[in-house]
Simulated assay, not measured.
Amino acid sequence: MTDDQAPNDIDRHNSKMAKKKQARDKIMASKTQEKGLIIINTGKGKGKSSAAFGMIFRCIAHQMPCAVVQFIKGGMDTGERNLITAHFGDLCQFHTMGEGFTWETQDKERDIAAALAAWEQAKALILDDTNAMVLLDEINIALRYGYISLDEVISFLQTQKPDMTHVVLTGRNAAEELIEIADLVTDMSLIKHPFRSGIKAQIGVEF
C-alpha cells in the first residue's frame, strides 16, 4: 500500500462506518417499547444456565430484585449459588428445589413431587412483581419428562406473569409450544465438548 492510498482507505472506512451508524441509530430510535420478556436458553451445547446467571448478575448489579428456582440441580455446591446466597441474598432469592437428575434419585414420584413444589415456588416468585427477573433453571427438563404440565406453564406465563417481569427458562429440548410464546430464544449448539475426551466437569467451568 502506498502512502497516498492509506488516507483514501481511511476515508472510505470512516464513510462506511458513518453510514452504518446512521442506519443503526435509525433502527434504535424505532425501538421504544419495554416489556417483561419470556427468555429461553436451550440446545445441546453448554452455557444455557451460565448465560441465564449472567442476566441474574446484571439484575443484582443494577440493584433489581430477582430470584432463581433450580428444578433439577441438587445439593452440589455451585459457584453462582454460593456467591449469591453469601453476598446478594437481599437482592436475589435462591431456591434449589430439585434433588439431582432422575437417574440419580431413581424415584419418579419423588422427582415429580420436587418439580411440582419448584413450580409452585416459581409461580409465587413470578407473581411478586417486585422481582425484575425470575430464572427457572432446568425447567425444560422437568417439562420434557412430564413432571409439570406444559399447558399450565404456558397458560400461566401468558395470563398471569406481570407485564414487566422477565422469566428465563433453561434446559435442553425446550418444547415448541413454549418457544412459540417466547420473546427471546437461544439454541446453544454443541461443536466440541471435553467430556467426550474423558475430561470431567471442573470447578469454575461447570459449577
Results as ranks from 00 to 15, higher is better:
residue 149 S to L: 06
residue 101 F to C: 05
residue 71 F to R: 02
residue 81 R to L: 08
residue 190 L to A: 14
residue 181 I to V: 10
residue 151 D to E: 15
residue 44 K to R: 13
residue 57 F to T: 10
residue 21 K to C: 11
residue 17 M to L: 15
residue 185 V to I: 14
residue 16 K to P: 06
residue 15 S to C: 05
residue 2 T to S: 15
residue 61 A to R: 03
residue 138 E to N: 09
residue 71 F to H: 01
residue 36 G to R: 03
residue 72 I to S: 06
residue 109 E to W: 10
residue 192 K to R: 15
residue 143 L to Q: 00
residue 23 A to H: 06
residue 99 E to I: 05
residue 140 N to P: 09
residue 179 I to W: 04
residue 119 W to A: 02
residue 136 L to R: 04
residue 126 I to R: 08
residue 160 Q to R: 12
residue 129 D to A: 01
residue 121 Q to S: 09
residue 205 V to K: 07
residue 95 H to W: 06
residue 99 E to C: 02
residue 34 E to Y: 14
residue 164 M to R: 04
residue 99 E to V: 05
residue 174 A to N: 05
residue 18 A to W: 02
residue 24 R to H: 13
residue 76 M to G: 08
residue 114 A to P: 07
residue 71 F to K: 04
residue 182 A to W: 10
residue 99 E to L: 09
residue 171 G to K: 01
residue 204 G to A: 03
residue 20 K to P: 07
residue 11 D to Q: 13
residue 29 A to G: 09
residue 59 C to F: 00
residue 50 S to T: 09
residue 59 C to L: 01
residue 108 K to T: 10
residue 61 A to G: 15
residue 71 F to M: 07
residue 26 K to N: 05
residue 190 L to E: 15
residue 76 M to A: 13
residue 69 V to F: 01
residue 119 W to Y: 12
residue 29 A to R: 13
residue 29 A to E: 15
residue 114 A to V: 07
residue 32 T to K: 13
residue 160 Q to T: 03
residue 166 H to V: 02
residue 157 L to E: 00
residue 98 G to A: 03
residue 9 D to G: 11
residue 22 Q to Y: 08
residue 87 H to G: 10
residue 127 L to R: 13
residue 95 H to E: 14
residue 138 E to D: 14
residue 148 I to G: 10
residue 109 E to N: 12
residue 74 G to L: 01
residue 131 N to W: 00
residue 25 D to F: 12
residue 85 T to V: 14
residue 63 Q to M: 15
residue 186 T to H: 02
residue 58 R to Q: 04
residue 190 L to N: 10
residue 199 I to Q: 06
residue 152 E to H: 11
residue 9 D to R: 14
residue 72 I to T: 09
residue 204 G to K: 07
residue 172 R to E: 02
residue 88 F to V: 09
residue 80 E to H: 08
residue 98 G to M: 03
residue 71 F to W: 01
residue 166 H to K: 06
residue 120 E to G: 00
residue 186 T to A: 08
residue 183 D to M: 10
residue 165 T to W: 00
residue 85 T to F: 03
residue 129 D to R: 00
residue 181 I to F: 06
residue 180 E to M: 01
residue 156 F to S: 06
residue 100 G to H: 00
residue 77 D to Q: 14
residue 18 A to D: 13
residue 99 E to K: 12
residue 46 K to T: 12
residue 180 E to P: 03
residue 76 M to S: 13
residue 29 A to C: 12
